[in-house]
């Protein structure tokens, strides 16, 4: 029964992660999640910096990606002429097929210098002195850092979110849209007041799916985030994420505590991703 094997597989994954992470958890207790320190010499580890980095990069990525993918989905379902729909749709889907490592080197060699030279000085000059949000845009323009990683992540999750959105938009019955037009609504009003509310749960599902991708993404982030185990208020400073620190430090990890600290972080991620997927599943079922 091959189907049972699939079940065992995930069980095995979860179990081995739990077993591997136990020493770190037993040693540091809950403080592991709230400390910023990361020092292999004295065997002191805390996961706060990577956890913070993961959440912040994913959050910014979603802020960028959600409006853009909404636009793409609207364009593909409502605006594009029939001959344009298929090639554009396929092109967006191909963006999803590009391996993450390609996004990584592209981000490192093309996007990061571009941001460093043209975008970040501008951000620092104009947004840096502002109260409240000014703290986000201070410090020297490194090029690599939290902001760059977020942008790369946003590009990567774009196709996933817009594909889901397009699919749910297409399930909206034509009658609903036509009655909207019949009342004299503009195209935008039909989209915003009929199509979007009708497919709201599906949209949330797509966003969750994209968030899951962004949280777990490894290689692209490793290239551009700068891998600094500290929390800095500035978005331009280097940081680290959970999966990036696993990729960077695992092969060098010596000592059980070190390895298991990494594994523990991972376990937190998979638990979070699982929880989100569960919500997604329930929501998706109620729409489709």
């Amino acid at each position: 029964m091959a189907a049972l094997l699939v079940l065992t597989l995930l069980g095995g994954v979860a179990l081995s992660l739990l077993k591997g992470s136990w020493p770190a958890f037993a040693h540091f207790k809950f403080a592991f999640l709230t400390r910023e320190i990361w020092n292999p010499v004295t065997d002191q580890y805390g996961a706060l910096a990577p956890v913070y980095g993961t959440l912040v990069t994913s959050l910014i990525a979603m802020i960028i990606a959600i409006p853009v993918s909404l636009g793409i989905a609207i364009f593909l379902t409502e605006l594009a002429p029939a001959w344009l729909k298929r090639p554009v749709g396929v092109a967006i889907e191909l963006l999803a097929a590009v391996p993450s490592i390609i996004f990584g080197i592209w981000g490192l060699f093309v996007l990061a210098p571009l941001l460093q030279r043209h975008v970040q000085p501008w951000l620092i000059e104009w947004l840096g002195p502002l109260p409240l949000i000014g703290k986000l845009f201070q410090g020297p323009p490194f090029g690599i850092g939290v902001l760059t990683a977020s942008i790369v992540l946003a590009i990567m999750v774009l196709p996933f979110i817009s594909a889901v959105m397009r699919d749910v938009f297409e399930t909206v019955p034509d009658v609903l849209k036509e009655s909207g037009y019949g009342l004299g609504a503009t195209t935008w009003e039909v989209i915003w007041k009929v199509v979007v509310p009708y497919s709201r749960t599906g949209i949330v599902g797509g966003i969750m799916l994209g968030l899951g991708r962004a949280l777990g993404e490894t290689m692209a982030v490793t290239f551009v985030i700068g891998n600094a185990h500290r929390i800095s208020p500035s978005l331009l400073a280097p940081g680290t994420t959970i999966s990036a620190s696993i990729a960077n430090e695992f092969t060098e990890a010596v000592g059980d505590l070190y390895t298991s600290s990494l594994v523990l972080i991972t376990f937190a991620v998979i638990a979070a991703a699982r929880f989100m997927l569960m919500r997604l599943d329930r929501r998706a079922l109620s729409t489709v």
Binding site: G216, I246, A273
Partner: peptide
Amino acid sequence: VLLSAPSII
């Protein structure tokens, strides 16, 4: 879940 689990896991 496996389908969307991060590949690094």
